[in-house]
Amino acid sequence: MRVSDIVFDLLLLGIFIPSIAGFIMGRPVFVSYAYSDSMTPTINRWDVFFINPLSKGEVGDIIVFNLSGKWTVHRVYAITTEGYITKGDNNIATDQQDNKNPPVKRDQIIGKVITIGGRPIKIPKIGKYLQSKNSHYLAVGLALVGGAILGVGGEKERKRRKRRRKVIDTSVIYVLMATLLAIGIVFTASMSWREIGITYASTLAGGQKEGWYLPGTTFSENITVKNYAKIPMVFIVEGKVVNREAFKLSGEEERNIKVTIHVPEETRIYTESVKVYSYYPILPTSVIDRLHDENAYLPLLIEGLLVFAGLIMLKPFLGEPEYIPLRRF
């Protein structure tokens, strides 16, 4: 086996594992699909497209971001000091027109759609099957296919081992795979964090339009926190306009959170935000809540370590370690 083969397999796992985990989490990582016609004809409904998570995009690029709790794929129309102004190619107005939504902040963007010659790389209509009720079977199928591809390659190498010197312990590769899986879990959970913005106006014409309130008054409304994942998740909601809550939601379950806002005396447009953190239910909700109090990333770090430790403990049950030959590039 060449060094390049090992690097390629690990790279493949580094993309494959987070993508499957992201699918189960309901959070795009490297691959996603459009569920509306807002980007037609550039990206049609149900078209699968690919994401570069290392780029936040520039004016003219197509980005994937969280807009009021929903994953959205739209083009960057402009960039201001307050954030990104976005627009669907098939929409007349921007997402922010008439203060319908606040500008998109950089931390709401998960990546840029990969294009060649200005055209997105896409697979038509596949997304229709990904959003069906039985879509989790497709995820499992993709995992099995990926595993089979890696397995076939490994079997071919095993047949040639006798004539080559043994230099690499498979335990090392197993540890690297366990590390990638743990990192993938932490990555998909942390990148699912989001902010829900509430935009309103303090104005003497309060009550004449939706979202207009008299200075000095108080109003309440509900925001919806939804678990887009296929599995249960623990959520922590906090912000100065909500009471901090920690709770568990089943797959695709949602919960209404009451928001109370005291309208400032100064007349202008305001935006308040509610932060939503999500964690795997590996630890009890109360423990996650206490750890989150110390640092938002601390529960993720401990859960990642627990996953890694669990995989390492399984290693002895997989048989004795083997050795595979190593050839240079």
Rank of each mutant, 00 (worst) to 15 (best):
M1S: 13
R2P: 13
V3C: 05
D5N: 12
I6P: 09
L11R: 07
L12K: 07
G14P: 10
F16L: 15
F16N: 03
F16E: 11
P18A: 15
S19G: 09
F23C: 05
I24R: 00
G26Y: 14
R27M: 06
R27N: 10
P28S: 13
V29T: 12
S32N: 14
A34Q: 06
S36P: 09
P41Y: 13
R45F: 13
F50A: 14
N52R: 14
S55F: 13
K56P: 05
G57H: 04
V59S: 12
V59L: 04
D61V: 10
I63T: 04
F65C: 09
W71D: 07
V73G: 03
T80K: 11
T80G: 06
E82Q: 13
Y84I: 05
T86Y: 14
N91Q: 15
I92N: 15
Q97V: 14
P102W: 00
K105T: 15
I110P: 09
V113Q: 15
P120L: 13
I123A: 06
I123P: 03
P124F: 01
K125E: 14
K128D: 08
Q131C: 09
Y137V: 02
A139E: 08
G141D: 07
L142E: 10
G147N: 02
G147L: 09
A148R: 04
G154L: 11
K159P: 03
K159Y: 01
R160K: 07
R164Y: 03
R164W: 01
R164P: 03
I173K: 09
Y174G: 00
Y174R: 12
M177W: 01
L181Y: 11
L181M: 15
I183L: 06
F187N: 09
M191K: 13
E195L: 01
I196C: 10
I198K: 09
T199G: 07
T203R: 07
G206E: 06
Y213A: 01
P215A: 05
S220D: 02
N227V: 05
P232M: 02
N243L: 00
G251V: 14
E254S: 10
R255W: 07
T260M: 00
P264V: 08
E266V: 09
T267H: 11
S273E: 07
S278M: 04
P281A: 01
L283T: 03
R290P: 01
E294I: 02
A296F: 11
Y297T: 12
Y297E: 04
P299Q: 02
L301V: 15
L314A: 01
L326D: 05
R327S: 01
R327E: 04
F329W: 04
